[in-house]
């Protein structure tokens, strides 16, 4: 599996959906079929599930979305991990860059937070590299 990247901000949103609908429905809901297996693996890993489970889930997903039984088995194992409950109460980390800086500089920190199970994202300032610099004030 590739290292966790900034994509986990996206994946964390999926974790919220899990809390609302349950992991199994999240996995099997056709609305999410278009989501990449890569992002799904990130999300799974982010929840501090074992790397082995994450790889199994990744494989099940890439083998074909119809493989529901396989996914169901893994989902059952995942749902018993305490990290899922811990995830629900952790705060979101929002990183706001200062002058002359884009959100990319925070990628390493975002990765650290996400690996620790936090939802983290960096945002861009509208006044940074603007098309109309005079349109913005402090």
């Amino acid at each position: 599996m590739e290292p966790i990247t900034n994509e986990c901000a996206y994946s964390s949103a999926s974790a919220t959906e899990y809390n609302q609908h349950g992991l199994l429905s999240w996995l099997t809901d056709k609305r999410y079929a278009a989501r990449s297996a890569h992002a799904l693996a990130h999300w799974t890993h982010q929840l501090s599930a074992s790397a082995h489970l994450a790889e199994l889930l990744y494989k099940a997903w890439t083998d074909g979305h119809h493989n529901v039984a396989s996914i169901e088995t893994i989902a059952t194992q995942l749902s018993t991990t305490s990290s899922l409950n811990a995830m629900a109460i952790k705060p979101t980390i929002l990183l706001v860059p200062g002058a002359c800086t884009g959100p990319e500089v925070f990628d390493p920190v975002v990765s650290v937070f996400c690996a620790a199970g936090y939802e983290a994202l960096a945002v861009a300032q509208a006044s940074a590299n603007p098309t109309d610099p005079d349109a913005y004030t402090a």
């Binding site: 002058a99 500089v105 603007p130 610099p133 005079d134 402090a138």
Partner: peptide, 19 residues
């Protein structure tokens, strides 16, 4: 790498009072 990511910012932002 970080130097290459340096981008200019609206000077107006620095000339107006902050919220």
């Amino acid at each position: 790498a970080l130097a290459q990511q340096h981008i200019p910012t609206s000077a107006n932002v620095f000339r107006t009072g902050v919220l």
